[in-house]
Design a protein around this nucleic acid. Structure first.
Lengths: 225, 225
DNA sequence: CGTTAACCTGAACTTGGTCTGAGAGCGGCG
DNA sequence: CGCCGCTCTCAGACCAAGTTCAGGTTAACG
């Protein structure tokens, strides 16, 4: 998953990036509203953390512009404690959640995770596909309860696919979401990681759709329901 | 379906082609207005994506010429944010929709899909013919709810036929719309694919009209069916 | 009813996308 | 500084989609 952090204060920005990176996300950062707005509109993020009190272009305006341009990425806004009304206008402008500064990093991580999960329309923090279970909270994958050791990239790839069950994900969409801005397009790393994951999982939940990309099937066949 | 992309900036052109190809369209590209104009007039497209700010011959002129020549293909124009008036003149010149740069690829894909659908006079993104349902958004075909595995070409062929129910489609019209520029005319691939589709679908919705081509019948006869 | 041209169909062939193993590059950690 | 594990690159093998071909079948027409 790829996250955008828009925060002017260098120290907090660094902390946010570090914490989000630690739990396995790919993070881009913007130091002001203008840059943030541009990135949000042009890159593919799974969630955005947006400080409301920004120089150059304030957070509310950025958010409003995004929503006007029909950007659906979930946004978590950060507000100062003494600017209580910002929270309301932020939610009005289309924020999906808010957090009052100062906050505990743990809290933020939990909320970002929840945003990504809800945006994918998933009911639980545990994504299951047959015997394979991916826990977004612990960042662990198990098969029939037995833990599987995945590297960072392997996990990101699998997590992204499992967040979009039954949907064909193209190679380019995958690279957009598990790498940051600059990455060589014509490379077969995606295939290599798919291969590795397949070798580590006893069941092959990743189907390749020739010419289009990959797809993991939803757990339970929705059969004659 | 076959799309023409007229865009001078190589990077954006590549992205557009990639995205449209990803969702199963056949894409031709032109790097300037002249080339674009020529292709649009001489090849059979189902939709055209046209950048307004082009060298050699600007987009508005291209579009005007097409419309003057009575070309009815739906056209989506791309305009720069700061050239607001272009949008208006573009619509005046006969554009069917517009998008302001920068835009999100998903947005563009949705609009192109909608253009093609509307041009065919279809009310919904789901094309039905008896028990056979083709979903243009997900690119999936089901019969009585059960999914059918089609290859890329099979899908294109079926989609084109189902976009024009009750109309007899000639072999040459089919090849024009599911292949790009250079394709060997005297070949029986169309017949082979029709055959394959017939074998995959339990009901034969593709009727052959001897000497003319193929036809799928409209879903439900209003009454005495 | 026979002839002809159009169409169908199964199988072989070709092509290009995908897979996969081995190894180089790189950074972290002891 | 050297080891180790992760990531990426490359080349060749592999495989399914796409195409061609050859022969069979069907409809149109006199």
């Amino acid at each position: 998953m790829r996250i955008l952090v828009v925060e002017d204060e260098p120290d907090l920005r660094r902390q946010l990036k570090a914490a989000l990176t630690d739990i396995g996300y790919v993070v881009d950062e913007a130091a002001n509203g203008e840059e943030g707005h541009y990135l949000g509109e042009n890159e593919a993020y799974d969630a955005i953390v947006l400080d409301i009190g920004l120089p150059v272009m304030d957070g509310i305006s950025v958010l409003e512009r995004w929503r006007k341009a029909d950007l659906k990425t979930p946004v978590l806004i950060l507000t100062a404690r003494d600017r209580w009304s910002d929270k309301v206008s932020g939610l009005d402008a289309g924020a999906d959640d808010y957090l009052v500064k100062p906050f505990r990093m743990e809290e933020l991580l939990a909320r970002v995770r929840a945003l990504i999960r809800r945006a994918a329309g998933l009911p639980s923090a545990e994504l299951a596909c047959g015997p394979v279970v991916l826990n977004t909270r612990s960042g662990k994958v198990t098969v029939d309860g037995a833990p599987i050791r995945l590297t960072a990239q392997e996990y990101r790839l699998l997590a992204y696919l499992m967040h979009h069950p039954d949907k064909v994900i193209s190679r380019s969409e995958l690279t957009e979401h598990i790498y940051d801005q600059d990455f060589d397009r014509d490379s077969n790393t995606i295939e290599v990681f798919v291969n590795r994951i397949r070798k580590k999982l006893p069941v092959d939940i990743i189907k390749t759709v020739r010419g289009l990309g990959y797809r993991v099937e939803a757990p339970a066949g929705p059969d004659a329901a």
